[in-house]
C-alpha cells in the first residue's frame, strides 16, 4: 500500500459537524501525527479509517482507488486504542493468543513480539499484575502482531516509560523503513516531534495545517531564541550590546549577567552572526540558537486559524 487519501471527508453527529471536508494523504514510509485539542475530530478520523464510522460525505482512496473500508482492508491495519484495558483475569500471553488466532498468526511471531516489547518474562502473569506501561506495551505488541501495512496509534506514548518509549521508537523506525503507513494521534507533540515526518493539525473538524515540521515552522514564522554567553568584561560586554543595537535597532536584547538573550526571526540569524563575529570578538564564549518547539508552533497555528 503506497498511500491513503481522505478526500473532503465530512462526518456529522446530529448537529455537530465533527469533520468538515477534511482532505489529507498518508504516504508510505511516512509517519503522520494528528494533533488538535479535544473534539477536534482526531478520533472521528481514525474511526472512519478503521471502518467504525461511515463518513457522511467524501471518499477514501487507497492507492488511488476509491474503495470502502471492508474486512479485506481492515485485515491490513493495526490499531492501538487510547487507554485500552484488557481483561484483568487473563495473562498477557492468553490475550495475545486471542489476537494471534484471530489474525492467523503463529506462536513464533507471538514469541518474537513478546520479546520485542519486553514482556517475555511476564507473559504468563495475569494482566491485573501489569503496570500501566506494561499494559500499553502489550497493546502496542498486539497492534503490530500481524505486521500491518497501516499502523494507527491513538495516544501511543500514554503511560510508557523510557524502555517503553524505546520500543515504540524502534517499531516506528521499522515500519517507516519497511515503507508502511503510520498514523498517530497524540497530545505529546514534544516527545513525538522528532519521530514523525508530518503533522496534521485539526481544529473543530477542519485541517488547520498539514505539512512537515520545517514547513510548519516557516508557516508559523515564530522567532528563534539566540543566547550568547560572554566573558566577564563589563566594558567589552557594553560595547558588544551597543554594537548589536546599532545593527538591529528593533530587537529586544536582554542581558542577564554574562548571558545575552535575543528573540528574532530565523532568517535574520545569518545577519546577527555576521555582526556578532565581525570583529572576531574574543568576548563570545558560546552562542546557542533554539528553534521554537513544536508545541509553540502548534499553539500559534491553532490560535491564528
Amino acid at each position: 500500500m503506497d498511500n491513503i487519501t481522505f478526500h473532503q471527508i465530512t462526518k456529522c453527529f446530529g448537529r455537530l459537524r465533527a469533520l468538515d471536508e477534511v482532505s489529507l494523504t498518508l504516504n508510505s514510509s511516512c509517519a503522520m501525527l494528528l494533533a488538535g485539542p479535544n473534539g477536534a475530530g482526531k478520533s472521528t478520523l481514525i474511526n472512519i479509517l478503521l471502518g467504525l464510522y461511515l463518513p457522511d460525505g467524501g471518499e477514501i482512496h487507497v492507492d488511488g482507488l476509491c474503495i470502502p473500508i471492508d474486512n479485506k482492508l481492515k485485515a491490513r491495519m493495526g490499531y492501538l486504542p487510547e487507554s485500552v484495558a484488557f481483561s484483568e483475569n487473563l495473562s498477557g500471553w492468553a490475550m495475545m493468543s486471542f489476537f494471534a488466532h484471530a489474525r492467523g498468526i503463529g506462536r513464533n511471531r507471538m514469541h518474537e513480539v513478546m520479546e520485542r516489547i519486553g514482556l517475555s518474562h511476564a507473559s504468563r502473569r495475569a494482566i491485573s499484575s501489569y503496570s500501566k506501561g506494561m499494559r500499553q506495551r502489550l497493546a502496542l505488541g498486539i497492534s503490530v502482531l500481524h505486521e500491518p501495512e497501516v499502523l494507527i496509534l491513538d495516544e501511543p506514548t500514554s503511560g510508557l516509560d523510557q524502555e517503553g518509549l524505546g520500543v515504540l521508537w524502534s517499531l516506528l523506525d521499522e515500519w517507516r523503513e519497511k515503507g508502511r503507513l503510520i498514523l498517530i494521534s497524540s497530545h505529546d507533540l514534544g516527545i513525538l516531534e522528532k519521530r514523525v515526518d508530518k503533522f496534521c493539525i485539526l481544529r473543530a473538524g477542519s485541517v488547520v495545517a498539514c505539512d512537515e515540521p520545517p514547513a510548519l515552522r516557516r508557516q508559523a514564522s515564530l522567532p528563534v531564541k539566540v543566547r550568547f554567553t560572554l566573558k566577564e568584561d563589563s566594558s567589552g560586554q557594553a560595547d558588544f550590546i551597543e554594537g548589536l543595537r546599532g545593527h538591529f535597532p528593533s530587537l529586544q536584547i536582554i542581558q542577564d549577567g554574562c548571558s545575552i538573550r535575543i528573540e528574532m526571526q530565523s532568517e535574520r540569524i545569518v545577519d546577527l552572526m555576521a555582526s556578532a563575529f565581525s570583529n572576531e570578538h574574543p568576548l563570545i564564549e558560546s552562542m546557542r540558537v533554539t528553534e521554537p518547539e513544536m508545541e509553540n508552533i502548534y499553539e500559534h497555528l491553532l490560535m491564528s486559524a
Binding site: N71, K74, A75
Partner: peptide, 15 residues
C-alpha cells in the same frame, strides 16, 4: 466499550 476494546475488536475483519 468501557475497556475501550470494542473498537479494537471491530477494527479487525469481523462483522
Amino acid at each position: 466499550r468501557e475497556r475501550r476494546t470494542l473498537n479494537l475488536l471491530l477494527s479487525m475483519p469481523i462483522h
